[in-house]
Design a protein around this nucleic acid. Structure first.
Lengths: 211, 211
DNA sequence: ATTAATTTTGACCAATTGGTTAATCATTTT
DNA sequence: AAAATGATTAACCAATTGGTCAAAATTAAT
């Protein structure tokens, strides 16, 4: 039984993964340490051995998930592409990301609202100053061509992000109005349809906007 | 026999209001019966006297809040107005509604995802069959003029709703990117700006859409 | 092989939490 | 005024939950 010392970090990892799933599904206050232990297949005392407390374990999980979310958004926006290409790529990749991580944004927003001090912790792991300025300055020429002012950027960015994030967030509300989307496959199709829908709507509006 | 003393419904009402606030803020699993009692200024046993259990109290609160949310959306969409007016009115009224009820959608979506059997309960209090069909059929002519097909309605409706709901849902994420919006006053301004932004974007896109 | 260090466990603890109950207080009815 | 009914409370209770600890099991070092 050379079960080896690899179990060291292996066990910690198992716990972390189980905790991630359970916290993401039930939130901090809904999650139970015993359930995490069961899912990880270890004794509950081990959770405290590797991660002092529920709060610590949660914080580590939260930070990782927060990083996952924001890094995805920011890395795409940072890329060196023409504006239109960049937005299209964002919609494509981020909608795929939301398909694979449907529960992620609801979890994050909920915990943020529950625990305001968590919010700023993102700055420890991901750097982003004023994304508006960054994007606006980088695409100065194109912005001018579209007649976009810096002050328009706030509405614009929220709108673009909402195209991909909102359906993931509001899944349960949407499927109430459109029950056929409850089927996973149909919902994913719907999300992928949304790539072109959003891109068309956005750029048609920009191209023809009134001064 | 005179219908009991005024305190009857008064106390029940106080508890219900306190519970509404606390559930909306902390969710089912984060809320404590003792805290509700304190906020209502009554003994904890009274909560059980008027509402059997935490679950019952929660369900009553949830149903009321759910009704509040959906009735607002649906009542506007039902009104007898030309399509464009209707959408503009929706954006106006619903954005004002979201300003006054910022936490409402996050609460609802969270509880729905936590407790799937709650979702369908809406049908007990608010009637809405297929909103898409209802709206599409009612505005058949205008839809044709815009070149909108019935199959476009799903994306369109989600997009329109997201204009008002997403900023309320994603408030904490948005203020992370735009810290100046943390000030309540500025955020409300931002929301009101959004009425015209959304309406312009939507109708410019519709008017110029490619076949 | 022995010892030392690390990891894992079961049994236990104290605090919290939803819920109950019997007594008290207030109001209405007779 | 007394009895009856309803509202309110303090004191408990049982279950759950995060957390601890000493012993056992496993792995590494001597």
């Amino acid at each position: 039984m050379v079960k080896a010392r690899e179990t060291d970090s292996h066990t910690r990892e198992k716990i972390f993964r189980a905790a991630s799933e359970i916290f993401e599904e039930k939130g901090y206050s809904g999650a139970r340490m015993q359930e995490v232990a069961d899912k990880a297949g270890v004794n509950k005392a081990l959770l405290h051995y590797y991660f002092r407390s529920k709060e610590q374990l949660f914080k580590e999980v939260y930070m990782a998930l927060q990083k996952k979310m924001f890094e995805k958004i920011i890395s795409i926006l940072r890329e060196d592409l023409p504006f239109k290409e960049k937005i299209k790529k964002f919609l494509d990749e981020h909608i795929e990301f939301m398909i694979k991580n449907q529960r992620l944004p609801l979890f994050l927003l909920n915990e943020m609202s529950q625990n305001p001090e968590l919010i700023e912790s993102i700055r420890e792991t991901v750097r982003f100053n004023d994304l508006r300025t960054m994007i606006y300055d980088r695409h100065a020429k194109e912005m001018k061509a579209y007649g976009i002012k810096k002050s328009d950027m706030s509405q614009l960015m929220v709108t673009i992000i909402s195209f991909s994030v909102f359906p993931a967030l509001a899944y349960d509300m949407i499927t109430l109005l459109m029950p056929e989307l409850k089927e996973r496959k149909r919902f994913n199709e719907y999300m992928r349809e949304r790539k072109d829908f959003a891109s068309d709507m956005l750029f048609t509006a920009l191209k023809n906007r009134k001064k």
